[in-house]
Amino acid sequence: MMAQQVHQEKDRLDLAPKKFVMWLFVFASFMIFAALTSGFIVYAGGHGHALNLRLPDIFIYSTSVIVLSSLTMFMASRSAKRLEFDRQRLFLWLTVALGILFFVLQVYGWYILTYKMGIYFVNPNASQSFIYVFTGVHLLHIVAGIMVLLSALYISYRNRPQAINLYRMEIASIFWHFLDIMWIYLYVFLLLNQN
């Protein structure tokens, strides 16, 4: 009976499958962006409608912000592994703050696009509408990402077992780094298609 209990404990604490769920979710979400960018290529290629604009500089700033947030996320994970929980929380808070800043900068980017450059979402050249779709769908993911970060923070304040803490941190890192890489992909994609 004892062995059985031990066995079941192992069943219960096996978090690997749950982590794998996160990876699969990342794949699924990647497919949305792959589909949208492929849609862009089909649209732009078939109609000779290129973007025909210079992307506002604000996107360079937002890109650096989200790259920086990946760095703080990494620092948070490392601190968690080294049992430095105060530093872990600090870096997590920083990541959340940078995430929110990224969100604000992206929305400011929309403001510049519409009010300064006259490039609207409702647009006979749908290539330009695609900018809003890419950034908008990505921002939706950012909102979800911030919630995942906050849940990792919550766990770290609740003094849960270290295994759970690390698991939550890993889930948050996988997702947050994915969002970072996804934005870089989208940004480079848009830059390459500017003309």
């Binding site: 794949f27 497919m31 589909a35 649209y43 509408s129 779709v133």
Partner: peptide, 25 residues
């Protein structure tokens, strides 16, 4: 399913924009 359903999401999102927001995808 994991690889193909998200593509339908993308298609449906653009359709919703065309229907309700006035875009021309």
């Amino acid at each position: 399913g994991i690889l193909s359903f998200p593509v339908l999401v993308a298609g449906v999102v653009l359709l919703i924009f065309d229907r309700s927001f006035g875009t021309s995808f």
